[in-house]
């Protein structure tokens, strides 16, 4: 008989014992270990996920902040640029005004200079004319300039044309009647003989006794003039000087014009370039 029933029973018991032993020592601990490990791994993965989410959130936050910062920076930059622009415009304006003022001042100075020069030239020319005339008259005629001046005045008086003479005569007469004598003004004191000569010439010209008062007027440059009741006969170097002055004036204007005009023009162009 191949089957021994005692052995069968023993083996059944043995097998059941083995089942218990292996359950106790093999399956349970091994499965527990695997479960624990799996749990741990799951936990770690969950942790990693959580960390990832956190990192993502932090990254988002940081990005947000960054964007806000960028915007703020851009706004500040814009503001600063605007302010700088305004400031620049203001400074430019100021500079322009200053430049304008300066140029006006300069023009003024230039004008003053021209005026002064003009006056100096006229004074000098006057003096020169006096000197030349005096010298020339002295050397040529042996007589003083004043003498000659008186003669010229007399000559002019005599050479008056008819309407002028008539007008003057009327004026003289009305002056005489108003007991307001005609005035002969001269830049210098006339010598007696010259006064006499002028008196004579007047008397001869108007064929009447003319009362004349002689006055010295230094502002008359140099010359003689007869004024009465609004009428006037005169000769003075001032006449010649006037034409000379005109000539000099024109010369100065020609010289001064481009200088005065050119400056604001350049200023303007530089301003335009800057803006």
């Amino acid at each position: 008989m191949l089957i021994d029933w005692f052995t069968v029973a023993a083996q059944v018991i043995n097998f059941l014992i083995l089942v218990w032993l292996l359950k106790r020592f093999l399956y349970k601990p091994i499965l527990d270990a695997i479960d624990a490990r799996e749990k741990r791994i799951a936990k770690e993965l969950a942790d990693a996920d959580a960390k990832k989410a956190e990192a993502q959130q932090e990254r988002d936050e940081f990005q947000h902040k960054n964007e806000a910062f960028e915007q703020q920076r851009a706004a500040l930059m814009n503001k600063a640029t605007e302010e700088a622009k305004t400031e620049r415009l203001r400074l430019l304006d100021e500079a322009r005004q200053a430049a304008d003022a300066l140029s006006a001042k300069r023009q003024e100075t230039l004008r003053n200079d021209a005026h002064n020069l003009n006056q100096a030239i006229s004074r000098r020319a006057q003096q020169e004319v006096f000197a030349i005339a005096r010298k020339a008259l002295t050397e040529l005629a042996g007589t003083s300039l004043e003498e000659r001046m008186g003669k010229v005045f007399i000559h002019r008086l005599r050479a008056l044309d008819a309407p002028a003479k008539a007008g003057l005569a009327v004026a003289l007469q009305s002056a005489q009647s108003a007991s307001d004598p005609a005035r002969v003004r001269s830049a210098f004191d006339l010598p007696e003989e010259q006064r006499a000569a002028i008196q004579n010439a007047l008397n001869e010209t108007f064929s009447a006794e003319i009362h004349v008062r002689f006055e010295t007027a230094p502002d008359l440059v140099s010359g003689i003039e007869l004024t009465t009741n609004g009428q006037k006969v005169a000769w003075s170097i001032a006449d010649y000087l006037l034409s000379l002055e005109r000539g000099v004036d024109e010369l100065l204007k020609e010289k001064g014009k481009p200088e005065v005009k050119a400056e604001p023009k350049t200023e303007q162009s530089t301003n335009e370039n800057r803006s």
């Binding site: 052995t7 023993a10 083996q11 292996l22 093999l26 270990a33 490990r37 741990r40 791994i41």
Partner: peptide, 27 residues
């Protein structure tokens, strides 16, 4: 049969016990 069965059981049980005595829960 019984003796060799016991032997096999012993090997299985003792082997398992020895190995699972210091089980690692770590990686």
């Amino acid at each position: 049969t019984i003796v060799f069965s016991w032997g096999v059981m012993l090997v299985l049980a003792v082997g398992s016990k020895l190995i699972t005595r210091r089980l690692s829960m770590e990686l």
